[in-house]
């Protein structure tokens, strides 16, 4: 069974890059372009892991994390925050919402996969 990852980012470029890196590593990838779409994609994707951007229209990354953590089915799915910001304030806020970890953009494909493997315990 392949591992399903939902990636949420409003930038099609980043979505493309993340999707490429994940697919190359053998993951099954689902994409959404904002928090609302991300939440909506959950039943379809039934992800093992979620990667999300913070700054997005409609519902930002914090909102998405909170929604996922508040749901019955997906509350324990690991969520990695993909962000250009590396400030501790942002990490603290993401953690408060329930983020599992973070990756700072720009990411290297290997680094992204290593972090995912770590969080999934692969």
């Amino acid at each position: 069974m392949s591992i399903r990852i939902l990636a949420v980012d409003d930038s099609s470029t980043i979505r493309g890059l993340v999707s490429r890196a994940l697919k190359q590593a053998g993951f099954e990838v689902y994409l959404a372009c904002d928090g609302v779409e991300g939440v909506g994609t959950l039943p379809d994707a039934d992800p093992h892991l979620i990667i999300t951007d913070i700054n997005m229209p409609k519902m930002d990354g914090f909102g998405l994390i909170e929604s996922v953590r508040a749901s019955a089915e997906y509350r324990s799915v690991p969520i990695l925050v993909l962000t250009t910001e590396s400030g501790t304030e942002l990490k603290a806020r993401a953690r408060k919402c329930g983020a599992t970890g973070w990756i700072v953009k720009p990411f290297e494909d290997d680094r992204l996969i290593a972090v995912i493997d770590k969080v999934l315990g692969r």
């Binding site: 609302v36 779409e37 909506g40 994609t41 929604s67």
Partner: peptide, 29 residues
Amino acid sequence: TVSTKAAFSPLAPTSANAGSEGRAVKSSE
């Protein structure tokens, strides 16, 4: 245990709520 506890938390949305949100997104998708 953790999730059982969280299920009683006032923060948890009703499943109907989450469901309708999901559907709305579906249609826009």
